[in-house]
Amino acid sequence: MAVESAQVAPAGVAERDRPSTAERALKIIHQAWRPVALLALLFVAWWVVTATELVEPYLVASPGDTFAVIAEKSDYFWDNTLVTAWETIAGFVISIVIGVLTAVIMVYSTTIERTLYPLLLFAQVIPKIAIAPLFVVWLGTDLAPKIVVAVLMAFFPIVISMVTGLKSVDPEMLQLSATMGAGPAKTFYKIRLPASLPHLFSGLKIGATLAVTGAVVGEFVGANEGLGYVIQQANGNFDTPVLFAGLIIMSLLGVVLFALVELLEYFVLPWHASRRIDAATTSL
């Protein structure tokens, strides 16, 4: 007699259906309509201010002039955007590697943590625009100083977030791991690292936007290409349409990099509460 096996959910555990594609699309629309509406409102306000000539055109370029110059000089903006994007991504990746390694060392060594933490804080509060000229003198006017400034801008939130995440592990979990014979490496890989990822991604989102700022700041000091160079030249020539176009493209670059980190978090941390479609949130 054949016995059919049935999967029975454990007692006290409610089985949850996976959200459908339509539910995911509705969630995205629900989350996106507010910022889209705000951007549309700001755009309308920008157009009204320039159309009614509340300010002089050389102070605030109109939306029409701004987007017209982007279309007219598309190759010029594209080439300079690629330069800034490369500097930003290179600096961001380097800051992730150095930041994660530094955080791990600080967590596993109290002496190193007490030694490095004040130095990291001291380095963070120094205005990067003030020390960027030093990197130009030391490293020249190529990509290296811009990447270094991007690393310095993105490094601090990454290392602090990672340290916080690695320390947020329940001590009882660490004791249980040691009791079961797991070594430091296995404990780190199985317990500490997964627990630190939500904190790490929070730092990565901040670092992604700061890396763009760092690359542009480096270009302000000494460069002959990149969005920072475009903005600086437009500012010197009182060319507000090009200036506004450079600012918009720079902002979009930061948004795209932030979105990529958000997308990576979605695939890496599908189990986290913030990623669930039915997570408890305040809605208006």
Rank of each mutant, 00 (worst) to 15 (best):
D75S: 11
L210Y: 07
A208Q: 07
L101P: 03
Q7D: 01
G99W: 12
L260D: 09
R34D: 02
W271D: 06
V48C: 08
L41G: 12
G207A: 14
E72Y: 06
V48Q: 07
T66S: 08
T282V: 12
E113T: 13
T84I: 06
T187F: 02
V136N: 11
V137Q: 11
L263G: 12
H199K: 00
A259L: 14
S168K: 03
I277E: 05
L120T: 11
L121C: 04
A123I: 12
A85E: 03
S74H: 01
R192N: 07
V93H: 05
A185V: 14
T179I: 09
F201E: 04
A182H: 11
E53T: 10
F156E: 04
V93Y: 05
R114N: 15
N224K: 14
S5A: 08
D170G: 02
L39I: 11
H199W: 06
L121K: 02
A32G: 08
L247D: 01
Q7H: 02
A223Q: 10
P63V: 13
L59S: 07
E172T: 13
P57R: 15
S20A: 09
W271C: 02
V69T: 15
E23H: 08
L176W: 08
S202Q: 09
P127T: 14
I129S: 15
L210V: 03
L166H: 08
P171K: 10
F67S: 08
V169G: 10
A208W: 04
V159I: 12
E56F: 02
G222R: 10
R34T: 11
A182I: 06
Q7M: 03
G207Y: 06
R34L: 15
L260W: 11
P19H: 03
L193G: 07
L54P: 00
V261Y: 06
L101T: 12
F220I: 06
R18E: 09
K186H: 05
R16S: 04
G183W: 08
I160S: 03
V221T: 15
I126T: 15
V49L: 14
F238D: 00
L134A: 10
V221K: 13
V49F: 05
D278R: 10
D239T: 04
I105H: 00
A211N: 07
A150M: 08
L197N: 00
V268Y: 04
G226H: 00
G226N: 03
V3W: 02
I105E: 01
L120Q: 10
P133Q: 11
P184G: 04
E56P: 01
S177I: 04
E219F: 01
G181T: 07
A2Y: 01
A273V: 15
I89W: 10
S168D: 02
M180V: 05
Y76P: 00
A195Y: 02
I277L: 14
W47L: 12
V49D: 03
K128I: 10
F135Y: 13
I131M: 10
Y229C: 07
D278N: 13
G236N: 14
N235E: 08
V125R: 12
Q124A: 09
A6I: 11
V44F: 14
L38T: 14
M1C: 04
A185E: 08
T111E: 13
K190V: 02
L101K: 08
T50F: 03
V48F: 12
F92G: 06
S109R: 15
A2F: 01
F244P: 07
L252A: 13
E15Q: 03
P194H: 09
F244H: 13
Q31A: 12
Q31H: 10
I105Q: 05
A178M: 03
G207I: 05
K73C: 01
D17L: 08
